[in-house]
Nucleic acid binder design. Sequence first.
DNA 1: TGCCCATTCAAACAAATGTTTAATACAATT
DNA 2: AATTGTATTAAACATTTGTTTGAATGGGCA
Lengths: 223, 223
Amino acid sequence: MATHELSTSGASSTGKSSEDRETRARLLYAAARLFAERGYARVTVRDICKKARANVAAVNYHFGGKDGLYRAVMRHAMETMQATTEAAREAGRDLPAADRIRAYVSVFAERLLGVHHETWIHQLMLRELSDPTPALTMVAEEVLKPRMVYLSSAIAELLHCAPDDPKVLRCALSVTSQFNSLLWTKGVAKLLDAEDGVPGSVDEIAEHIAQFSLGGMSGVKSR
Amino acid sequence: MATHELSTSGASSTGKSSEDRETRARLLYAAARLFAERGYARVTVRDICKKARANVAAVNYHFGGKDGLYRAVMRHAMETMQATTEAAREAGRDLPAADRIRAYVSVFAERLLGVHHETWIHQLMLRELSDPTPALTMVAEEVLKPRMVYLSSAIAELLHCAPDDPKVLRCALSVTSQFNSLLWTKGVAKLLDAEDGVPGSVDEIAEHIAQFSLGGMSGVKSR
DNA sequence: TGCCCATTCAAACAAATGTTTAATACAATT
DNA sequence: AATTGTATTAAACATTTGTTTGAATGGGCA
């Protein structure tokens, strides 16, 4: 179980850059997509290896087991999500609170729905939330918490109240929950009536969430 | 796989009301809670039978297999959710659009968080959304769709536009997504900072969601 | 060339899991 | 009392699944 623990960098002693970490990278890629699509329990190592065109033993060799592979995938996902949080923070720098929230929403909509981004990462994260693995604690501490802290500061400024006011947390959850729905509605909305997820382009969706959220907080403020 | 298909009513030919459908009911109850807690794949029939104090073969005898048991659980859950939709509809009868939405939010908050209701049902449903099984199609058609249709009518009235306007669907998703977050935040919020899920009593949470949603739609309307 | 090392591969293993089977118990009916 | 049909049970079965093993491969280097 813990024999091959520090295999993150794998076999990087001798730099055979061509085929060396080729299979390792393929395994990571295949596993990421499968874990995001079906969840940890519904994916077998044989599925992963088949998709990655690798031998069954490759997972244990490179990652020490299925758990280690999942953790490696999660590490990559967490780094990307932290970068997303940082991008949102940067996009709103020196802006008033309402515009900081607009920037936050815009960045997240682009990363969650934009064609150029790895959308599987966010699906994997959402899955980790609704179906916790031992990695959840780490995710909550290093990804979710900074994100909520930043969002809460803007919301508190908007509501003219302290950042630890219960209203702030409730509003922050109301804002972020709309992004979660963007992900799972992808698979459901087509069963309802929409042809392909939430209707509209990425910009339209971002515009909607920003307007809805700002209006919502205005409604909460003027109770 | 399909040997015991119509075993919903099970062995009800002779009415031995004492111990007859006792194990069957215990299996249903135990399976419902376990499926809601861990999801289909992470629950074994041995887990269910142990919790229900039944033999391993009992699942196959009464439900024809793990699949049949899950379907039976889903049937029960769907009936309860349809009743919830109907209760929300009834609570808002003959009320103006804004009050219909307030009533809708109030009913759902009570059923999702109230101590007297079977909260596991909604957790199971949310899990079905993020982790679809073959039962999803049925759920979407018979539960989600009527719910969205009703909610959309009120929203369309509020926004002064047609019910099939993309704005309406986006707003409906923004409203319902806040309820989804109520469920999964139960397991996460305590890792962030809140002590026990979203802060506040059931009424306070319902009040927040109503204000946030109505304010949000007001913001969308006055673009 | 010959040795060393990381990597890959087919095969096998042990544990877990959904399902089946045959026997038994029990209550109602004939 | 004998029979019938349902329910329960322990044991076994067949598959799946994560992991391990030992041999083979192939490139770099003395």
